[in-house]
Design a binder for these strands. Structure first.
Length: 423
DNA sequence: TCTGGGGTCCTAGGACCC
DNA sequence: TCTGGGGTCCTAGGACCC
């Protein structure tokens, strides 16, 4: 049996963990630049506030005191996520972190009659240790675990734990699950299925496999099997990420190439830092820039350019230089850029780098020095800081230039601490 | 005025091979 | 008038997840 532990309204719960006065109130957490709602408390959901609602539409509610808005504070959420995961993995073996706020684990070795008690206790300990409320769904497949988790959250009677351990329970649960709530059926698939007469997860499982295959592809068949209790979603993810992306929307639109170069340098620098922190190196550096897609009155442009390195690298200098070459190729005057990003691909282990056959002595020496400089930067810079940086990068904190009008204090990280030089 | 960010996997079609 | 068949690999774009 699989168990899925999922934090309730995670970002909101993180804010509440340090601001108990938010308990019981309608709260939303906003995306970067206070753009739109990315997390909602149950009270906010009950008010009909949808995921992704732009903040300017919520502002009246905030001003009249009916709703509290928080700017997002990802450092805080990452920190609390780590603590939650630590408690979970300290209790049960074989935990698989699936996202910032959820993890799968196996219940092998636990007697079925003890599932509930073990999980209720786990929830209590996470709550006591972090302040974060968690729900757990238990079922023979991950997709059914998601379904069970849904019920655990929805009905207080379950006290946070819902078990699907018989066919009766499975069929009952599926009949109560709308098809668009099913994990793996997205915003394109759901309307398509509903038009074909599939309203619930149960309807879906009653279609023949070939019917599903021809309309929803192999991923649809996987979901179809999982809902019947046949595991079809692979157990483990790879330990090394296949791509790394750093991108931001800008508070203001950027028309100036020099300004865009600064921002892209920052993004590339963060990517390089992430690469090194995972002891990885990469062969491909891509850059994209977007105009503001909501401004019909302005010309639109969505370029993407890739640069291949001749040997995998992870130094800030190499990654930033490659990104800037791509930017120079894609940049066009006359557009107002609202968002840009750097994407790293073809990632390999840094200690297994395949060297070039005909690399010159000078090239090798340059790479060695760049790696050395990056190592020093990593020693001096704390996460999120670029105290020591390239001249092509902006001074200051990475969050500069992002609007965060409703940011909570940095409860688990201190500003001065970020600026303190190690050693 | 104001609309997020970071990932994975699948597929169809093209390039290339013999 | 006539122009093979069977593969693999790569890539861009789409769909999905949180």
């Amino acid at each position: 049996m699989y168990a899925l532990a999922d934090c309730n309204n995670f970002f909101v719960s993180c804010e509440r963990a340090f601001q108990p006065q938010l308990e019981g109130k309608a709260v939303v957490v906003l995306s970067n630049n206070d753009g739109c709602a990315v997390a909602r408390s149950n009270e906010a959901k009950a008010m009909g506030i949808k995921m992704g609602t732009p903040f300017f539409q919520l502002r009246p509610l905030v001003e009249s005191g009916k709703l509290v808005a928080c700017s997002s504070n990802y450092t805080l959420y990452g920190d609390l996520s780590e603590r939650v995961m630590r408690i979970l993995s300290g209790t049960l073996p074989g935990i698989e972190k699936y996202s910032i706020d959820e993890a799968f684990f196996s219940l092998d070795g636990i007697q079925p009659e003890d599932y509930r008690a073990v999980c209720v206790d786990l929830i209590r300990r996470v709550r006591r240790g972090t302040g974060i409320p968690v729900s757990i769904g238990i079922a023979p497949t991950k997709t059914l675990g998601k379904v069970a988790n849904h019920f655990a959250k929805k009905y207080p009677g379950y006290r946070g734990v819902c078990v699907i351990d018989s066919d009766d329970k499975r069929l009952k649960a599926l009949s109560l699950t709308p098809i668009d709530d099913v994990w793996g059926i997205g915003w394109r698939g759901a309307p398509k299925l509903m038009a074909l007469g599939v309203q619930t997860a149960l309807d879906f499982t009653r279609r023949p496999e070939a019917w599903v295959r021809s309309r929803m592809g192999v991923t649809g068949v996987r979901t179809w099997k999982e809902l019947q209790g046949i595991p079809a979603v692979s157990a483990e993810r790879e330990e090394r990420r296949k791509s790394i992306c750093t991108s931001r929307s800008f508070a203001e639109m950027i028309t100036d190439k020099a300004e865009l170069r600064l921002r892209v340098s920052d993004f590339a620098g963060i990517c390089a830092q992430k690469l090194r922190s995972e002891r990885s190196a990469a062969l491909t550096v891509g850059v994209f820039a977007h105009t503001n897609r909501f401004r019909d009155d302005l010309p639109q442009y969505y370029p993407f350019e890739i640069e291949h390195l001749d040997t995998p690298q992870n130094s800030t200098q190499a990654i930033v230089a490659a990104a800037l070459r791509s930017l120079d190729r894609l940049f066009r005057e006359g557009y107002s850029y609202k968002r840009a990003g750097v994407v790293i691909e073809d990632i390999v282990a840094a200690d297994a780098v395949q060297l070039r056959l005909f690399e010159s002595e000078e090239e090798r020496e340059m790479r060695r020095r760049q790696d050395e400089i990056s190592a020093i930067m990593d020693k001096v810079n704390k996460p999120g800081s670029n105290l020591l940086r390239l001249a092509t990068q902006r001074p200051g904190h990475y969050a500069d230039g992002i609007r965060r009008d409703f940011c909570s204090p940095l409860f688990t990280t201190d500003w001065n601490d970020l600026l303190e030089v190690k050693g």
